[in-house]
């Protein structure tokens, strides 16, 4: 071994030195793979931790999916909702058709359809199965109707105003739309959304605590190792880095577990839901996490894992000094 002139320890370093960025990148890459290797050495306990985090993350994600699907469901119903404008029998078919055209010019109205008394009777006869009973009546009991399809963007309030206006129009008996139950559903959904947010916050805290506790045990088990590293001249940042990446790995694996759990639940539910929707003559089907939500789920896992380990490592590492 050749000796060089002794140098002050605090500034100069011996030997070839990588550039600061390269060496920083290498340090992080090392910590990244080192911490991954650590986890694979104890696959069962790592898996259990990831599972706990995964379940914790899956809960708010599943509730988010529930709200998303309910929202889509109510939206698809909103779109099929039509307002019915019942016309007075005084109005001739010609006048009725003109009124349908006039209503269609409204900005909130997508389209209108004039249904004459005869057509209404024919439809009723066909759909209801009461044809024979109708034959007993001397005259057609059904009024002419204009079916009004509001534009998709029309709010409930706008539709209500439209109906009020239409019902005051000469020749209109009444105008109605059955959507109060939709408003109630929307009201419930908003509450559920708030619950999901509050729950997500609590469960995020749970993930941080879970990761923090796991890392704390890890630090305790590796106390001697940390002391040796510090004696060899390791900075706090150097010692901290693998622990932070361990937290990141836990979070990412937890995110993946959560995603898998959701896929399983969706897979199990999609059949029965389609069956139920079929009973309602709806082609509604469950929607899963889209790409953005999936990425968000993974990022949330990573961020929470990092936060949990950072919080723990910062508290415990300073206290470990060589003796």
């Amino acid at each position: 071994m050749s000796r060089q002139t002794p140098q002050p320890a605090t500034n100069k370093r011996t030997g070839p030195q990588a550039g600061l960025l390269t060496s920083l990148g290498q340090n992080h890459a090392r910590a990244f793979f080192f911490s991954a290797g650590k986890l694979t050495r104890h696959p069962l306990s790592s898996l259990l931790t990831a599972l706990v985090i995964g379940i914790t993350l899956a809960l708010p994600a599943a509730l988010h999916l529930l709200v998303q699907n309910m929202d889509a469901l109510s939206f698809s119903w909103e779109r099929t909702v039509q307002a019915s404008v019942f016309l007075s029998d005084d109005l001739s078919e010609e006048q009725g058709r003109q009124m349908a055209t006039r209503i269609a010019e409204h900005p909130e109205v997508e389209e209108t359809e004039y249904i004459s008394r005869e057509k209404a009777l024919a439809e009723f006869r066909e759909l209801s199965g009461f044809g024979a009973a109708l034959d007993l009546l001397e005259e057609n009991p059904l009024p002419a109707v204009i079916a009004v399809q509001p534009v998709a963007t029309a709010s409930a309030l706008q539709i209500e105003d439209l109906l009020k206006e239409l019902s005051l129009t000469k020749g209109v008996d009444s105008a109605r739309i059955d959507q109060s139950w939709l408003e109630r559903l929307n009201g419930i959904l908003i509450i559920v959304q708030h619950i999901v947010q509050a729950l997500a916050l609590l469960l995020a805290l749970a993930v941080i605590v879970t990761v923090g506790n796991t890392i704390r045990l890890d630090i305790q088990n590796r106390k001697a190792e940390i002391e040796v590293m510090k004696l060899l001249g390791a900075t706090n940042a150097f010692v901290r880095r693998p622990f932070l990446y361990t937290g990141v790995w836990y979070g990412l694996c937890g995110g993946i577990v959560a995603w898998l759990l959701l896929q399983i639940v969706l897979g199990v539910l999609s059949g029965p839901v389609r069956h139920l929707a079929g009973l309602y003559q709806s082609d509604f089907s469950l929607s899963g996490l889209n790409f953005e939500a999936t990425v968000l789920l993974f990022l949330a896992g990573i961020a929470l894992g990092w936060t949990g380990s950072w919080w723990t490592v910062t508290r415990h590492l300073q206290a470990i000094e060589p003796k």
Binding site: R13, S23, Q26
Partner: peptide
């Protein structure tokens, strides 16, 4: 380890 702590190249 001491070389890794110093951030030397592989």
């Amino acid at each position: 380890l001491p070389l890794v702590i110093r951030g030397l190249r592989h």
